[in-house]
């Protein structure tokens, strides 16, 4: 190592280089409907001691840059609804993360665990709805357990086996994940490069989860504004909008935030998050749909 680089921490130097590579790659790869390097697993291995960090890009540079390696790290993640809000958006967010992970790992399978009580309360998951989010229902299995405690047992088994790329567990009201369990899940998930996502109504007290998100639905403001400009009586629906608050981040990138707040839209076709303003509801197609762009 020469003297010139001593001014900067070598690790930061490496991160910066990789970040630059990531940005150019993201810029050149259009929003192709096929899998692109952009949202293939960002297997960025930043050596930190002996542990390699890798993860899944969310498709939105603003969020990705918060994490070391430029993507949501493998491991355990928690999603909770914002205070007093309905749990549906948190579950939606978890499934979007799953869709993103499954898109990155072509052979990967997904497992969703719900207790019978949660299913009764919030409704059972619906195949065509999952497909519309970009999940392939043929690669999913849905486990319904009778006792709430079994949800975490199934999650444990799934993550430990290494047979799933992503597992989503929805906890019932009052159920929480213990510190020991979260450490175990985190370890299993990281050793198999998979995602474990726990959707709980209340945030757990103390957990080893890599990130913790608070999720609320975001009104389709773009669609409303669009309708107002055009003088339409009733706005149409935009893409699913979420207000994400990153409450905890155990893999924050240098210079990136430990926390953050974003309003994002889910693009089910490209299977990625995007900024709401980027694509008004009226735009029918993007450059990515043209055949010449698909070749690139």
């Amino acid at each position: 190592m020469d003297d010139g680089s001593l001014a900067e921490d070598p690790l930061d130097h490496l991160r910066r280089q990789i970040g630059a590579l990531e940005r150019t790659r993201r810029a050149t790869a259009g929003p192709d409907r096929r899998l692109k390097a952009d949202w293939r697993m960002a297997e960025v291995a930043v050596q930190e001691g002996v542990q390699a960090i890798s993860g899944v890009s969310l498709g939105l540079g603003r969020i990705d840059s918060c994490f070391q390696g430029g993507g949501l790290p493998f491991g355990l993640h928690e999603a909770t609804p914002a205070d007093g809000a309905a749990p549906a958006p948190a579950m939606g967010f978890a499934l979007m993360l799953m869709a993103r992970t499954l898109a990155a790992r072509r052979e990967g399978r997904g497992l969703i665990v719900q207790s019978a009580g949660a299913e009764r309360e919030g409704g059972g998951l619906y195949g065509p709805g999952l497909a519309a989010l970009g999940l392939d229902p043929a690669r999913l299995a849905l486990v319904r357990v009778r006792r709430p405690a079994e949800v975490l047992q199934v999650l444990d088994e799934a993550l430990r086996s290494g047979a799933v790329a992503a597992a989503v567990a929805e906890l019932e009201t009052g159920e929480q994940i213990s510190l020991a369990a979260s450490q175990r899940f985190n370890f299993w998930a990281q050793s198999h490069d998979s995602m474990g996502i726990v959707v709980a109504l209340q945030p757990s007290g103390n957990s080893a989860a890599m990130t913790r998100w608070q999720v609320a639905a975001a009104p389709s403001e773009g669609a409303v504004a669009f309708a107002r400009r055009r003088g339409l009586r009733r706005p149409r629906l935009g893409a699913p909008g979420l207000e994400l608050v990153l409450r905890r981040n155990r893999r924050s990138a240098a210079g990136g935030g430990l926390s953050g707040r974003w309003i994002v839209e889910w693009d089910g076709e490209d299977c990625g998050f995007r900024t709401p303003e980027a694509l008004p509801a009226s735009v029918a197609g993007t450059a990515g749909h043209r055949p010449d762009a698909a070749v690139a």
């Binding site: 619906y126 065509p128 699913p240 089910g268 993007t286």
Partner: peptide, 16 residues
Amino acid sequence: PAEAARYAGAPLRPLR
């Protein structure tokens, strides 16, 4: 189900 139609906009079918 085969790989189904995806939507860039609002999904036609609900999640739950």
